[in-house]
Every structure is written in C-alpha cells, then in structure tokens.
Simulated assay, not measured.
Amino acid sequence: MKKMILTFSTGLLILAAHGQQTQGRVVYERTLKIHIDMEGMGEAPMRPMPSTHKDKWEVLFGNNQSLRRAVEDDTPEEMTEVPDGGPRMHMITPGENEITYHNFTTGQTVEQLEFAARNYIITDSIPHRNWKLTGETTTILNYPCQQAIAQLIGKRRMTSVENGEMKSQEVADTSRIIAWFTPAIPVPAGPEYQGELPGLILGLEVGDGRVIYQAVEVTEQADLAAVKAPSKGKKLSAREFEAEREKMLEAMQKDAKRRGAVLRIGG
C-alpha cells in the first residue's frame, strides 16, 4: 500500500495511509473554567456560582476546508445576583455567536464575530505554532490519537468588579496547549488551532485547562454546502477589530454599574 509522508515542524514524521476519511462532522463538548474577582462587593451574600460552564460546538470539514460553529442549546441562561439591589450578572461565553471558516489550500481564515450586537468579518492567514510531538498516545471515540504540545504566548481578558464597578483589561498570558489529533483522519481541522496539525483534533486543552474540548461524536456525513466563508458583517482586519472593540468595551464599562455587571468566562 502506498504511504503519504507528512512532515511536522519538529522534523518528526507521521505516516498516514491513502483512502482515509477526509470529510465529516465532529461534535465537541467545551468546558470553560469560570474566574471572577469580586473585590469591593462588601458583605452582600451571593448565590454560589458554578466553577465551570459547558457547551457544544461542531466542526464540518471536507474539500480541504472546515467550518466551526456553536451547537444550538436550549439550556436556560445561567445567571446570579446579589440581593437588595446588588449587580445582576449573566454569563456570556466567548465565541457563542462565532463562525470560523478555514481554507487549508489557501491558508486563509475568515471569522464572523458578534460584539455589542454588531457582526464583524475578520480575515487573516492561518497562524503556525511550533508544535512538538511528545510520543504520548490515547484513543478517543475509537480513533488512535497522538499528543502534541505548543506554547501559547499572547493576552487574555480579565474581568473584575471593584467598588461596584466592572473593569475589564487584557493581561499577558503564557501557557501551554495540549492537543490530541488522529492521523486516521488526515485533515487539519479541529475546535481551535485549525490548519496546524496533520490530523483531526479530537481533544484539546488550552491555557493550562482554562478551556477544554472533547470530541463526543464523529460522523462521515456533513453538510458541505455550509462549509463556506461567512460574509455577514463589517469587514475589518484583526488589528482594526481589536481597536474598535477596545473603544466599545470602555463605553460598556462606564454603563456597567447602571445595567448590572456582565460576567465573561473562559477568556
């Protein structure tokens, strides 16, 4: 049988046979750790808040392309509040209205983001990190998987409440990404970091466990007509979007005390 040799950034080699699955649908369960700093809230009691939040995502892949989007969930909105006029909080999970498209032939990624009730289209190139194979293996949904790790260097947003006022700021973030991918499906798709590994990602741990994805279903059938770049929204570069978002966040923070604090989790 002929073999296809895939080179990796570390110089290691992976063998994948021809004729394997190259299209399908994956459903992932995402678990987000919740962190909030409530300094300045005094002695007002608050109902216990959950330490994690779970939701589901799907990835459709085929024709050397992929599409990632949230799976609709009828679970009631999670919220908590402080009695006697304290701030009422509802949880907004990162990316819940996001659609991400990748074209692995052109190396292009297109994101549709919703922020402050506005849609944005962000076009960029697929980044490449220095992934390293550890030699560790496991099985997920009967697929043999290999472990790869990379360092995540960037920023993440922290939200705190001080003296009744919500504050949000970006902080430096250096952590580790752990991915489990299967060469049995030689498509570089996944819930995040698409286009970077020589196989479908079935398990992913980001930011030392702050975000965890676990595949719960893999099928060979997919609506490939849906795998296309989104186009609904204001078109901006990544840098332009970040600048606009910062301005809008400042305005939202000024109004947070009157409306009630918004708790963002997992990012």
Rank of each mutant, 00 (worst) to 15 (best):
P186M: 15
P186Y: 11
P186T: 15
V187L: 04
V187S: 08
V187A: 06
V187I: 14
P188K: 13
P188F: 10
P188S: 15
A189H: 04
G190N: 06
G190V: 05
G190A: 09
P191D: 01
P191A: 03
E192D: 15
E192G: 12
E192H: 15
Y193M: 13
Y193R: 14
Y193L: 14
Y193N: 15
Q194H: 05
Q194K: 06
Q194F: 03
Q194G: 07
G195Y: 09
G195D: 10
G195T: 07
G195L: 12
G195C: 04
E196W: 11
E196Y: 12
E196R: 13
E196I: 10
E196N: 13
L197R: 06
L197P: 05
L197W: 12
L197M: 07
L197K: 05
P198R: 00
P198T: 01
P198D: 01
G199H: 00
G199F: 06
G199D: 00
L200Y: 02
L200T: 00
L200N: 02
L200F: 00
L200W: 04
I201N: 05
I201T: 08
L202Y: 04
L202W: 04
L202S: 03
G203L: 03
G203M: 02
G203E: 06
L204V: 01
L204M: 07
L204P: 00
E205W: 01
E205L: 01
V206Q: 07
V206K: 07
V206E: 11
G207M: 12
G207F: 10
G207E: 12
G207Y: 10
G207I: 11
G207L: 13
D208M: 04
D208R: 04
D208L: 05
D208S: 07
G209T: 01
G209Y: 03
G209H: 00
G209M: 02
G209I: 01
G209N: 04
G209S: 03
R210V: 09
R210P: 05
R210M: 13
R210K: 14
V211Q: 13
V211R: 14
V211E: 10
I212N: 09
I212V: 15
I212P: 07
Y213P: 13
Y213T: 05
Y213A: 06
Y213R: 08
Q214C: 10
Q214L: 10
Q214H: 11
Q214Y: 08
Q214S: 11
Q214V: 08
Q214P: 12
A215L: 10
A215K: 09
A215V: 14
A215D: 11
V216R: 11
V216S: 08
V216P: 14
E217A: 14
E217L: 12
V218D: 00
V218W: 05
V218S: 06
